[in-house]
């Protein structure tokens, strides 16, 4: 019961942070709020028995991701120029309609799902019992998440590592040697600046 109440409180906190993110104009608070969102969801993961996931989310989502955003924000403008609400309801109405329709469709699907924690739900009766059983009796490794990650689903994890590697290389390619690109862009940028001047 205590777990259920904690769950509700944390979900309410997540909704609160989400509303703040939507309403905040300055980007520094937005970035920090995104970190807070990750930290609260890490607390939720602990409450839902996913300690490994909580560990990762706290270190990656709340730590590294926030640091990266802040490092980029040192260079980017710190405030949103024109809030979409200021342009009239017509600007946010399409987005609102799309989100409400998609949300209703998802709700219609979600109420058919087995309740949270139901031991007879399909995800719990298929392969998970085998992982839990063999990890103790055959592999003698207590942390089942590690065995599934590295052994049973080794291919999957290999793919993920390659994706992380590729994304890292992609960032390096995009940002490395930027000094030279900056000069080239500046020499061509006057045309764009002139265009902007005509606007104003």
């Amino acid at each position: 019961m205590a777990g259920y109440v904690t769950n509700l409180l944390l979900l309410a906190l997540l909704v609160f942070i989400l509303v703040l993110v939507i309403r905040t104009r300055r980007l520094f608070p937005v970035v920090v709020l995104a970190g807070a969102y990750s930290l609260v969801s890490a607390a939720m993961f602990v409450n839902l028995d996913a300690v490994d996931v909580a560990f990762t989310e706290a270190a990656v989502g709340a730590g590294i991701s926030t640091v990266l955003f802040l490092a980029a924000m040192a260079y980017l403008p710190g405030i949103e120029k024109t809030p979409p609400e200021a342009k009239g309801i017509g600007h946010i109405l399409p987005a609102l309609i799309i989100c409400i329709i998609a949300g209703l469709l998802l709700v219609a699907a979600a109420i058919e799902l087995p309740p949270v924690g139901d031991p007879t739900a399909p995800p719990h009766v298929h392969v998970a019992p085998r992982y839990l059983e063999e990890s103790g009796s055959f592999l003698h490794i207590p942390n089942v998440v590690t065995t599934v990650l590295a052994s049973y689903r080794g291919f999957d994890t290999f793919g993920e590592v390659v994706v992380v590697f590729t994304a890292g290389l992609g960032v390096l390619v995009l940002l490395a040697g930027f000094t030279r690109t900056a000069r080239i862009a500046k020499s061509g940028k006057t045309g764009i600046d002139g265009g902007e001047g005509d606007d104003a």
Partner: peptide
């Protein structure tokens, strides 16, 4: 990857100021 990402983002600013 995490270290390279950090240096790419933090170093980007310096590179641009230098330019």
């Amino acid at each position: 990857v995490m270290l390279a990402l950090f240096h790419a983002f933090a170093g980007f600013v310096e590179a641009d100021y230098a330019a």
